[in-house]
């Protein structure tokens, strides 16, 4: 069994971003008479940054346990499923820079109604991805081209390099 958590140093930037977005927006809303349109936009931004701050705090208190048979997240963001029930996997890469550097990845795993999103700043992210890929291949899941490209960027080779054309249950054509 392995345990993965977000180190506080990795989340520090997110706390700063949430604060840098939330407090100035609230200050402008409170001080400047912005009108209905401007006020709605600023209130939307404030809500967005507040949600981001809350999610960062939830991640701070969450840890993910991975075993041969299952994946379980404990803490405030709880989710768990058996690897044998995994029916969707997506590995996304996001970068705000034009040259595509300095970005981060997000692994999205799902089984039935249960969905778990894991950021690449979690400790041992590569091990988590490898375990997920194994489970996905075992289940014969269809991986989209973006996920395949991102896995290759991580140095993880897929058994089937071409995307599969079939449903999640592995009914490939």
């Amino acid at each position: 069994m392995t345990r993965h958590a977000y180190p506080p140093s990795a989340l520090f930037g997110d706390y700063l971003r949430a604060a840098a977005g939330f407090f100035p927006t609230i200050a402008v809303l409170a001080i400047v008479p912005v009108g209905i349109v401007g006020g709605t936009m600023l209130a939307g931004f404030a809500a967005l940054f507040a949600v981001f701050g809350v999610r960062t705090a939830l991640r701070h208190c969450t840890s993910i346990e991975v075993t041969e048979a299952a994946l379980q997240s404990s803490g405030l963001l709880q989710a768990s499923f058996w690897w044998s029930e995994l029916d969707r996997m997506k590995l996304s890469y996001y970068s705000t820079r034009r040259d595509g550097r300095g970005g981060w990845m997000q692994l999205k795993l799902g089984a039935g109604w249960s969905t778990l999103r894991i950021d690449s700043r979690v400790e041992g992210f590569s091990e988590l991805v490898i375990a997920s890929v194994k489970a996905a291949e075992m289940r014969g899941l269809s991986l989209d081209p973006a996920t395949s490209a991102n896995l290759q960027a991580l140095g993880i080779e897929l058994q089937a390099t071409e995307p599969r054309f079939g449903n999640a249950a592995g009914a490939a054509i």
Binding site: A18, L48, W104, Q106
Partner: peptide
């Protein structure tokens, strides 16, 4: 995705 939106807004 939420992180991405927040990053982009803070750059805007």
């Amino acid at each position: 995705m939420l992180s991405y939106i927040v990053h982009r807004i803070l750059i805007m």
